[in-house]
Design a protein around this nucleic acid. Sequence first.
DNA 1: AGGCTGACCTGTG
DNA 2: ACACAGGCCAGCC
Length: 104
Amino acid sequence: MTPEEYVEAVLALVERIPRGRVMSYGAVADALAERSGRNSPRQIGGIMARHGGGVPWHRVVNSTGRLPPGHEREARARLLAEGVPLRGDRVVIGEAGWHPDAAE
DNA sequence: AGGCTGACCTGTG
DNA sequence: ACACAGGCCAGCC
């Protein structure tokens, strides 16, 4: 799988995240691990930073539910509008967390 | 090749 | 809950 294809796969998965739900960078990396041969949460972060426009990037947060640096305000507003459970400035992963295998 | 950096993660204290 | 350390994979000097 070429780097470009990997980027596409990541973006495609992010687009599948249902409204009101979120996934962590690690979960995304993990979900594509077998198919891509890669498994690095950092890559996902890098990809979102460079190619995140065009997909619901605000639905991807880190494992503690913290929002992406520099975009907290934007992300928080969008998540709030979608009804994602927030505790202060963090997403409650336990409730909003989503995984592609799980029924939507 | 070698070192540094990053929208990360997990385990410890 | 917060701070730190080690591990992680790619990209860029």
